[in-house]
Simulated assay, not measured.
Amino acid sequence: MSTGAVDGFVEPGRGGGLLDVVRQRYLLRLVVRKDLRVRYRGSVLGMLWSYVKPAVQFVVFYFAVGVFLRMNEAIDNFAVYLFAGIVVVNFFGEAFGNATRAIVGNSALVKKIYLPRELFSVSALWVAAVHFFPQLVVLVVGALIFGWRPSLAQLAAGVLGFAILTVFSLGLGLLFGAVNVLFRDAENLVDLLLMVATWASPVLYSWTAVTEVVGTGTIWTIYQLNPLTPVVELFHWCFWAPTAGVEYVMPPDLWQWVGIAAVTSTLVLVLGELVFRRLDGRFAQEL
């Protein structure tokens, strides 16, 4: 008996994986619409929460770090600097967190019918992107107020940073989403990682504050190996550096770390897809 397609049916884990998601874009759109409807069912503000949550987060961080700890005196246009980092960690947090819970959260569908299960992880990423772009609009408007005049290279850096961030988030989401079906501890581990991610990248402080304490040795290398760190710096170079009055100094070997982040993100995506497809056949029975 063939282990592949039999009478039009495909054994879980034997399909095209993420390629099936591309081929079945209509199904993906349906899942995205379902996720958005479920999220905002009975909500008064609806999609306005895409603005409310990051706005509150920004105000809290700005006053706690910028005003009370006087970071706004150390960093010119600290509001733009801060929000450029916040949109990165918010997208990563939502995409990674929701993708981790995607299979368990759609257990009714997983147990009843077969469809490419990667649809649920990609849908979580898409929903995060839906919430990311309104924040990006706010960031652009705020940067323009502060005299934002980016070059083509800086705009390209922002696009590159978002691409790396997307690949990294999806890879981790596939990996932890598959493991979470077997071990629900994965959700708690993800929450812990997301908390660390906010502080383990230069969102609330500058990279120079890190080198002043640890230098540019082993700890600095470990710090830069986190893909979020160079991605946040790319967003800073794209949105904060071109604002009026800013004298931006790039971190040492930034482009080297960007290349490493791109390779790391790609490897994480490949690993995540391999683990996901390996465990795919067990999802229905484990749920």
Rank of each mutant, 00 (worst) to 15 (best):
235 F>A: 11
218 T>Y: 11
258 V>I: 06
220 W>Q: 14
231 V>L: 04
261 A>D: 01
233 E>A: 09
238 C>Y: 05
231 V>S: 08
236 H>V: 04
219 I>A: 15
227 P>R: 07
224 Q>S: 10
213 V>C: 09
257 W>Y: 12
244 A>N: 12
208 T>F: 07
233 E>N: 12
230 P>Q: 07
239 F>Q: 03
232 V>K: 02
258 V>P: 01
236 H>M: 02
226 N>W: 01
239 F>I: 09
209 A>Q: 14
247 E>M: 10
212 E>H: 12
253 D>Y: 13
206 S>D: 11
219 I>M: 14
213 V>M: 08
248 Y>V: 04
224 Q>P: 01
242 P>R: 03
230 P>M: 05
246 V>A: 09
208 T>N: 10
217 G>D: 08
229 T>G: 00
244 A>D: 14
249 V>G: 11
250 M>S: 15
216 T>C: 05
262 A>N: 03
203 V>S: 01
222 I>S: 11
219 I>E: 14
263 V>M: 06
263 V>E: 06
229 T>D: 06
206 S>Q: 01
249 V>L: 12
206 S>L: 06
245 G>W: 05
237 W>N: 10
205 Y>L: 03
248 Y>T: 02
210 V>M: 08
220 W>L: 13
221 T>G: 11
225 L>D: 10
262 A>E: 05
238 C>I: 07
242 P>Q: 08
224 Q>K: 06
258 V>T: 06
240 W>E: 01
219 I>S: 11
245 G>Y: 08
227 P>F: 10
210 V>C: 00
245 G>H: 07
216 T>H: 14
204 L>K: 00
